[in-house]
């Protein structure tokens, strides 16, 4: 099931073949003094429109337009092919005109963000699944609020046992910060253990000041802290998974308009 999809292998092969054929064609036409920029340009533009249609496909999920996974496969392969066609189209590494520089910059940024996103999509789900427990992104604030309420309750309850507000004070001084909102996001992204270390140190600090009765509540705080750490990891990784399209999609939308402008200018000026 997690094996490589045979169909996508086929598409990879066909695309590689098509791009190869295009590059060969371009080579042979250029050596015949033919103009290839129009052909590669239109193919590239068509491909870009097709790549953009992937987003439209998502909005039209009620219409049977094929599986989104097939679309994604084509989107990824098409995006990679577009890089080659782009290289064939501009011919050099870097265009000279400002308009074309903007276009090329956008194209490369969109490609790079797409590649990054694709990599993240391969890399993060496994980590999310292994880290667990699974949590719907939109529910994280509520879950966090619930944990915080429980943690506060546990810290307060300790006072009922001993008559001292040691744990309550300590919670306000130190642990409240941790339960206030997701913490150590970057560390979670990098897979570090800082939150665990931080939490253990904080809990050890107070442990020696507590009675056995209070320790029951400290134990509860420890459990909640561990759960909160896991929740933070979910939040951090899922945020990244949801954030990269915030770069990719807007840039792609700008790119399309610049590409249309480029198309118009070329038709008016370059013939």
């Amino acid at each position: 099931m997690r094996a490589v999809n045979r169909n996508s292998l086929l598409v990879w092969g066909l695309t590689a073949g098509a791009v190869g054929a295009l590059l060969f064609w371009r080579h042979s036409v250029i050596t015949k003094l033919g103009a290839t920029a129009f052909v590669t340009g239109y193919i590239l533009f068509g491909l870009m429109v097709f790549l953009a249609l992937y987003n439209t496909r998502k909005k039209l999920s009620m219409v049977p337009l094929g599986r989104a996974s097939s679309w994604l496969t084509l989107h990824v392969i098409g995006g990679l092919a577009a890089l080659f066609i782009f290289a064939a189209h501009i011919g050099t590494f870097w265009p000279l005109g400002l308009a074309e520089q903007v276009l090329a910059t956008l194209f490369l940024l969109v490609s790079a963000s797409g590649a990054l996103g694709y990599y993240l999509q391969l890399w993060l789900p496994g980590r999310l699944a292994r880290r667990g427990p699974e949590m719907i992104y939109d529910r994280i604030p509520a879950e966090l609020a619930r944990m915080r309420a429980e943690a506060e309750a546990a810290a307060m309850a300790a006072a009922d046992v001993s008559g001292y507000d040691t744990l309550g004070r300590y919670y306000v001084e130190s642990l409240a910060w941790y339960f206030a909102r997701p913490r150590f996001s970057l560390n979670h992204l990098l897979g570090g253990r800082r939150p665990e270390v931080w939490l253990r140190r904080r809990l050890q600090t107070i442990d020696r000041l507590l009675s056995d009765g209070e320790r029951v509540h400290l134990k509860r705080l420890e459990e909640l802290g561990a759960a909160k750490t896991a929740l933070d990891a979910q939040y951090s990784l899922q945020t990244l998974l949801k954030s990269w399209p915030m770069v990719h999609v807007p840039l792609a939308s700008a790119l399309l308009f610049f590409a249309v402008w480029h198309l118009i200018v070329v038709h008016v000026y370059a013939r």
């Binding site: 949801k242 915030m246 999609v249 807007p250 840039l251 939308s253 700008a254 399309l256 308009f257 610049f258």
Partner: peptide, 17 residues
């Protein structure tokens, strides 16, 4: 939501272009 923001950014980017 983030998705709404994404849509807004996409419109903004298109308008800016």
């Amino acid at each position: 939501s983030l998705r709404v923001w994404r849509g807004r950014l996409a419109f903004l980017a298109a308008g800016l272009a």
